[in-house]
């Protein structure tokens, strides 16, 4: 988790409308940490609901956690360092996400921090989580 994401989840206990969204996002991230069952969407071109999804362009292997809420909630962007190891790097309110910028910015953040160590590149969805997950498909 990057400092900016940590700052966001740390603001979850405040008494504000933004904190409501931060708290929902924190609960979702903890859902992952606690190994609860989650849904992962592998194909960015499939418009199916999921907790975590690979985003376009798929070649970047950037994923987002999708916290729903007022005005769309919050998206937390990051990449996997290995199976089960998600590194949360950036976040944005859903209705303010620039989809051309955010995935690239996320990968740039990774490179800035990890230098030459690339993100983990799995060949399919099952390469990313080891337990308690299902794959979100268009047919349900």
């Amino acid at each position: 988790m990057s400092i900016c994401v940590a700052d966001m989840v740390d603001a979850a206990w405040e008494d504000s409308d933004d904190a409501v969204l931060f708290a929902q996002c924190r609960a979702l991230l903890e859902d992952y940490v606690r190994n609860n069952w989650i849904r992962l969407r592998w194909d960015p071109d499939q418009d199916v609901p999921a907790n975590i999804a690979r985003v376009r362009p798929p070649g970047l292997y950037v994923f987002d956690f999708r916290s729903k809420g007022k005005d769309g909630g919050i998206r937390v962007f990051g990449a996997f360092a290995a199976k089960d190891w998600f590194v949360a790097l950036t976040w944005e309110f859903r209705n303010e996400v620039d989809w051309d910028f955010e995935p690239t910015n996320c990968l740039k953040t990774w490179i800035d921090l990890f230098n030459t160590a690339p993100p983990y590149l799995g060949s399919d969805a099952n390469d990313y989580l080891s337990s308690n997950y299902s794959i979100a498909h268009a047919d349900g």
């Binding site: 979850a12 206990w13 405040e14 409308d17 904190a19 409501v20 708290a23 924190r26 859902d31």
Partner: peptide, 13 residues
């Protein structure tokens, strides 16, 4: 508000 939202979201998750 944040804490109440968190507890609700945690229950939902």
């Amino acid at each position: 508000k944040g804490v109440l939202s968190y507890m609700s979201a945690r229950y939902q998750t």
